[in-house]
């Protein structure tokens, strides 16, 4: 059934006779033309990357960041309508801080995804609002540290807490990656992609075997791969210039010490170089890494 001309697509929160909300589907269209954004989850941490199309020479290079930090160890990147992305990001920050205020501890990423998913979903329920024109990728690392309640005095027994079990099934922090769609639907991912180049990006992500338990990708490899994938996904819109933005989150004993941050300048440059080189390599040979610097 087509949407146009039926009248069922003119208002949000209205079902068509076959049970669709067209306004949400149209919001997805806004995302499909946005810059490509991806997230990679490895055992060692999470990488977020985005393709920032340079719409004007007059833009200040290296500014207008698109990947934001919502809590110390959580980042968010959105594709689609940029101002909507800012709205969602600021909601994410509010959720993180209100959680901290209630529970005196950082919000687990699963809960943050759930809260944001619920928020986005609420914008599909009423004709007085429009859905979010963004898909958001949320990456983070739930801290494995034995941190106390914020503001508590004292540390309990010096001998440590009694009866703690060393059961590997007990979750003690770790990486997390979620993607939230305009409908409010969200899933956890090993590798997520959205925006214009998502198809190509997904194909590349699948090659990384991220869901295999013996995936050997290090966090740095993931950074290089993320950069490469953004470059691959950009191939279809080669005429437009773009800037690559990269952030990462590692464990406490990793390079970012459990924080979400932009990758250092040197690593960003290395990743860009690696990406460009592997694209050139693609033309002749699949062999990407072994060339001289």
């Amino acid at each position: 059934m087509t949407s146009i001309g039926t009248g069922y697509d003119l208002s949000n929160s209205v079902f068509s006779p076959d049970g669709r909300n067209f306004q949400v589907e149209y919001a997805v269209k806004a995302v499909e033309s946005g810059g490509t954004c991806i997230g990679i989850r490895t055992k060692h941490g999470v990488v977020l990357a985005c393709e920032k199309i340079i719409s004007s020479k007059l833009l200040k290079p290296g500014c207008n960041k698109r990947i934001s930090t919502v809590d110390r160890s959580a980042g968010i990147v959105t594709s689609g309508l940029l101002p909507d992305g800012r709205h969602l990001t600021s909601r994410g920050r509010d959720e993180a801080s209100s959680w901290r205020q209630t529970y005196k501890a950082p919000i687990p990423l699963s809960s943050l995804a759930s809260r944001l998913g619920g928020y986005v979903q609420a914008y599909t329920l009423y004709s007085s609002v429009r859905p979010f024109g963004v898909t958001a990728i949320l990456g983070g690392w739930d801290s494995e540290a034995e941190s106390g309640v914020d503001g508590q005095v004292g540390n309990g027994p010096a001998a440590g807490a009694g009866g703690k079990v060393d059961d590997p099934s007990v979750k003690r922090g770790g990486p997390a990656l979620y993607m939230i769609e305009p409908s409010g639907l969200y899933w956890g991912y090993y590798g997520a992609a959205t925006g214009k180049g998502r198809q190509a990006a997904k194909a590349e992500l699948e090659k990384l075997d991220l869901n295999s338990p013996d995936c050997a990708l290090s966090l740095k490899d993931a950074v290089l791969e993320a950069a490469r994938i953004i470059y691959v996904a950009h191939e279809d819109s080669k005429d437009k210039e773009f800037e690559l933005e990269l952030t990462w989150i590692s464990a406490l004993d990793g390079p970012t010490k459990g924080r979400h941050e932009h990758v250092p300048k040197e690593l960003l440059e290395e990743a860009e170089k690696h990406a460009k080189k592997s694209l050139e390599g693609d033309d002749e040979d699949e062999d990407d890494d072994e060339m001289e610097e």
Binding site: S3, I4, D9, L10, S11, N12, F22, Q23, Y26, A27, V28, K29, A30, V31, E32, S33, L81, S127, S128, V129, R130, P131, G133
Partner: peptide
């Protein structure tokens, strides 16, 4: 109005 997406995802 500004709460309606066009089929192309424009407002």
């Amino acid at each position: 109005d500004s709460v309606t997406f066009s089929p192309q995802g424009r407002i």
